[in-house]
Simulated assay, not measured.
Amino acid sequence: MDLLDHRILSACHAYGADPRVAGVARALSRAGEHGALWLVTGLVGAAVDGARRGAWLRGAALTGGAHLVSMGVKRVVRRQRPAHVEHLAPTFGPHSFPSSHATSAAAAALVYGALGAYAVPPLAAAMCLSRLVVGVHHPSDVVAGAALGVLTARLGSRWVGGRRA
């Protein structure tokens, strides 16, 4: 698995040599810190969709909760960030598994997608890929984070309301 992780990360990180790609990846990384983009998305949804305000707010809470769970797992697993590539974006800690950006992005994609925010899933996928382009996660970190986000969203979908995530 380590060799596959290494090869995939190296290939994705190579796209960061293009300053335009690196700039977009850095911007996505900044926007996703601590799930900020997804929390703001939920608050905006609540503000503009009064009929489903509660569902948007519960979706924001669920997305934030997914992020917190990933941070807890990260503190237990303590896998180090990739050392074989230059990190093109700052990080708030040395641990990489699972990717908290991927966790909150995947949870947001399912929860907000079910509420009709169809632009969120492709943006969430771009967020996940950005973590590889900037070189701060192993691909397995991103996959595990996304799986944790999906699991969290599925478990909380009835609580959020709207269509089943």
Rank of each mutant, 00 (worst) to 15 (best):
F97V: 03
R20A: 15
G23M: 13
A153R: 02
P122E: 11
A147F: 15
R81W: 03
R79M: 10
A119E: 11
A47W: 15
V142W: 03
R158C: 07
C128W: 05
V150Y: 02
A125W: 01
A25F: 02
R75E: 10
T63S: 08
C12R: 05
T152D: 13
R52L: 06
T63Y: 00
F92G: 12
H67I: 14
V143S: 11
S96M: 04
H95F: 12
A36M: 14
A22E: 10
L123T: 01
A107T: 02
V136I: 07
F92D: 12
A89I: 05
M71E: 10
H6W: 15
D2Y: 06
G162D: 02
A83G: 08
G113V: 04
C12H: 03
R131F: 10
L115M: 00
S157R: 05
A106M: 00
G45I: 02
L4E: 15
A51Y: 01
L3P: 00
V76W: 13
R158P: 03
V133A: 01
A105K: 02
A109P: 05
V69P: 03
I8E: 06
G135S: 00
A124N: 04
S130W: 03
D49R: 07
R20L: 12
G59T: 00
V44L: 13
K74A: 04
R164P: 09
R30L: 10
V40K: 11
R7A: 13
G149L: 08
V77D: 14
P90V: 11
S157K: 01
K74I: 10
V150S: 05
W56K: 02
P122A: 01
V21W: 13
L88S: 04
V76E: 11
M1F: 04
R164E: 13
P90I: 11
L62Q: 01
P121I: 05
L132G: 07
C12L: 07
